[in-house]
Write a protein that binds this DNA or RNA. Structure first.
Length: 490
RNA sequence: CGGGGCGUAGCGCAGUCUGGUAGCGCGUCUGCCUUGGGCGCAGAAGGUCGUCGGUUCAAAUCCGGCCGCCCCGACCA
């Protein structure tokens, strides 16, 4: 009501619209504390912001003991139960503090590896114009999965399901010479695909966070080098997250092109059947030193020379040539996809540069995606047990949790606080469970949310000068003198 | 988009067939007790039964429309 009245008023005015905006309050007013000053004694007793944030008694972490009926697969159940996400509409989720921390950790690793490869980060909008998509010819081709919307002037817009069109225009308008090639631009942005049937929680939502990037080269040779760079980058990215992600030759599908690999995380509950050579599982990329300007083909060949295929690309005869003991039939989740697609977009959208002889050359493109939000689910599918999530350290919301078994015991709480401060001094954020609950409930919650290391502090330990350090993954516990706990996590 | 199912307290469910004062478990709150794996006892709060309309003296329950969510398939990062 108020907004439309305001719009009407503004449209009748010949003064700038902002002059007539009602005094909207953009941030909530500070609460009035009755009976004492907001800045008085009450504040002095508050713990520091950092401590407040990481204390479970103060933390927004709604865990659930029972499985919500709507969640069918394990990662979806655990994400809801562990207080990572909440659904707001079909296939659309809100990220709660713990889940958001994981999402940001994944995003950070993706970003670091993109930067390492020489790709440059941009940020393109979520809302795009239909005209742009008409130019590439995809507006009608894309179908109902594209969320089409109209603005107030009845202009046709859409919520971007992908960004080839936008990036091609940015490139076309900004680069005119072969001297400016190659380029590789990426961004990490929310996308929307109006899936007929969203399911599996964030693994196949409608709104999802995706890293996508686009390479531009003067010729096919250059484009393949760009492709190879991303191939290696993806190997590193997933390995850093503690995942076994195997590149598999992929069908290029509706996006087109003739060179494409899917990166598949192996998980028993994966969406599709996959077949590969066992040797791929044990290959290690992180120990290699990589020069992204050198010829990466040997590394790529090393991975692609062993058989690996998803269901739809499976070649039974070729698979059976592998000695039986080295065959691996498993299930997997697609977490990344890379394409070389030549001039499919650059030609219709006229992304051309001047070559050395002044001739016009249509650039060769590739595009590369990683499902950032999907990875949160994928990692859980690949790493959980009966009790809950088992986070790989690199993506865990917290590396360490301090389990205070008796918060109302000054000695126990004092020991916990000291450990917390010691970890903080080393730059390690710990989650401090200072809630007044029975030990059993705390252990159950802690196992559910899957923090890799639990430092358990109780009265017995305090009198012996020791804490118990539990490895979430193996369940092994070890008594460690207090003064040695912090250094274990350096 | 084809086929199926479900909407009752924060979560899991019963009650609907056969209309008559809305229930159970878990969670939450208070008190006591307890304190190394979701402990025990006592008390309490919390639901216009998805929504709109119809039938009826009376609707969670019967009828119709709409909305939402889930599953299988086709599709997909």
């Amino acid at each position: 009501m108020r907004a439309s009245a305001c719009a009407k008023l503004a449209s009748l005015s010949f003064l700038p619209q902002f002059a007539f905006r009602p005094p909207v309050s953009y941030s909530p007013r500070p609460p009035r504390l009755r009976g004492r000053s907001r800045y008085g004694a009450a504040k002095a007793r508050q713990p520091s912001k950092d401590q407040t944030r990481m204390r479970m008694s103060q933390y927004f972490l709604p865990t659930m003991k029972e499985n919500p009926a709507e969640a069918q697969i394990v990662s979806h159940r655990l994400m809801l139960r562990a207080g990572l996400i909440r659904q707001t509409s079909a296939g659309i989720y809100a990220w709660l503090p713990l889940g958001f921390r994981v999402l940001k950790n994944i995003e950070r690793i993706v970003r670091e590896e993109q930067d390492r490869s020489g790709a440059q980060e941009v940020l393109m909008p979520t809302i795009q114009s239909a005209d742009l998509w008409r130019e590439s010819g995809r507006y009608d081709a894309y179908g109902a999965e594209m969320l089409r919307i109209k603005d107030r002037h009845d202009r046709e817009m859409l919520y971007g399901p992908t960004n080839e069109e936008v990036i091609t225009v940015l490139f076309r308008d900004g680069v005119k010479s072969y001297r400016d090639l190659p380029r590789n631009l990426y961004h990490i942005q929310w996308k929307f695909r109006d899936e007929v049937r969203p399911r599996f929680g964030v693994m196949r939502g409608r709104e999802f966070l995706m890293k996508d990037n686009y390479s531009f080269d003067i010729d096919k040779k250059g484009a393949i080098h760009s492709y190879n760079k991303m191939f290696v980058t993806y190997l590193r990215t997933f390995a850093r997250m503690g995942l076994k992600a195997i590149p598999m030759r992929a069908d290029t599908g509706p996006i087109g092109g003739d060179l494409s690999h899917e990166f598949i995380v192996l998980a028993d509950t994966g969406e599709s059947a996959v077949f590969c050579h066992k040797g791929l599982v044990d290959k290690d990329i992180l120990s290699r030193k990589i020069d992204y300007d050198s010829d990466l083909q040997p590394i790529v060949n090393e991975w692609t020379s062993l058989y690996a295929a998803t269901d739809d690309m499976h070649d039974k005869a070729a698979f059976e040539e592998i000695p039986e003991g080295e065959r691996l039939s498993a299930r997997g989740i697609e977490v990344g996809h890379i394409f070389y697609f030549g001039t499919q977009y650059s030609a219709p959208m006229k992304a051309v540069v001047a070559g050395p002889g002044g001739e016009q050359i249509t650039v060769e493109m590739g595009s590369y995606g990683i499902g950032v939000s999907r990875l949160v689910g994928g990692i859980i599918e690949a790493s959980h047990d009966e009790a809950g999530i088992v986070w790989p350290e690199a993506v865990a919301p917290f590396k360490v949790a301090i389990v205070n078994l008796k918060p109302d015991d000054g000695a126990v709480s004092g020991a916990c606080q000291k450990l917390y401060d010691g970890l903080a001094a080393k730059g390690i954020e710990a989650l401090h469970d200072d809630r007044d609950l029975r030990p059993g409930a705390k252990f159950a919650d802690m196992d559910l949310i899957g923090i890799p290391w639990q430092v358990i502090v109780g009265p017995k330990g305090v009198s012996a000068g020791k804490a118990e350090v539990k490895d979430r993954k193996t369940g092994q516990r070890e008594e460690v003198p207090f003064d040695q706990v912090v250094q274990r996590f350096g």
